[in-house]
């Protein structure tokens, strides 16, 4: 539990909003180098898990560990310092910033963001290097052509890709991605798949993936847990969980008939 690179561990999380019960005893291990997916019907509490991990809400019970170290009193803007970064189900792009600027603004430790650092020669060199990095990131999803366009004018799927790259650019070792493929045009889905794979496999990041698109989950997830009716009803290796009759009936039946 205390080794240096342990990913994220969610342990015995319980939540309710006032009198409204959401879930109980949610335990999920999100190891580095792997994609851990969480599926479940609308309103199951998937986004709420991410919100709790990122300090938006306090849970009723349970603990969060990053690399074996317990997180306590984390506020949303501290998460990256603790090695975590999340994306949003509803994108939350910076519409008046260009696609490139959306990524640049996410990069940590910029001396040009301080009044005094602004006038040091190092700030310019750092900014040039950051721009190059941001451009390369856009290339990985074949969006370099959109670099200079205001992100708010991009098609939804491209906005979503940019918002993922933004999280990547923070350098966080643990990424929590909230439905990265939802609403994304079908021809862009392969880029989402490749990106998520690269994050986990090539870069070794611990990736928590909340997603409704079962085909995508099948393609990228190593582990899957199913959150339903306020608890984890199944969890384990992806092919095992996704092959489970009950899961398929309970979950897929619901989603696709909805």
């Amino acid at each position: 539990m205390t080794s240096a690179n342990n990913g994220l561990r969610i342990d015995g999380l319980a939540m309710n909003f006032g009198g409204v019960f959401v879930f109980d005893d949610v335990t999920i291990d999100i190891p580095p180098g792997k994609v851990t997916a969480c599926i479940g019907p609308n309103g199951a509490g998937k986004t709420t898990i991410i919100n709790i991990v990122c300090g938006v809400f306090a849970p009723r019970a349970g603990e969060i560990f990053v690399d074996g170290v317990k997180l306590a009193g984390v506020r949303p803007f501290d998460t990256v310092r603790h090695g975590l970064c999340r994306s949003f189900q509803d994108v939350r792009i910076f519409p008046f910033l260009t696609a490139l600027e959306n990524i640049l603004v996410a990069m940590p430790g910029q001396s040009g963001e301080n009044l005094l650092g602004l006038f040091t020669p190092g700030a310019r060199a750092q900014e040039r290097a950051n721009r190059e990095k941001a451009r390369l990131l856009l290339q990985t999803v074949a969006l370099e052509g959109a670099a200079g366009r205001p992100a708010g004018e991009l098609p939804f799927g491209q906005q979503k890709l940019v918002s993922l790259l933004r999280a990547v650019a923070t350098g966080a070792r643990v990424l929590l991605l909230d439905e990265p493929a939802a609403g994304v045009e079908i021809d862009l889905i392969p880029r989402v798949v490749d990106l998520i794979r690269a994050l986990a496999k090539a870069e070794g990041r611990a990736t928590f993936l909340v997603e409704h698109n079962i085909d995508l989950v099948r393609e990228v997830a190593d582990h899957v847990c199913v959150l339903q009716g306020g608890r984890i009803i199944a969890s384990g290796a992806a092919e095992h969980v996704l092959g489970d009759e009950t899961v398929i009936r309970e979950y897929l039946g619901r989603v696709y008939n909805a």
Partner: peptide, 26 residues
């Protein structure tokens, strides 16, 4: 100088989506 710098970019991000900027660790 300010608005053309990384600081200026962060200011516009604050304006556009403060919650998203917070999620990026700032």
């Amino acid at each position: 100088t300010i608005v053309g710098s990384p600081l200026g970019r962060a200011l516009r991000a604050v304006r556009d989506r403060p919650d998203a900027l917070a999620a990026l660790g700032k």
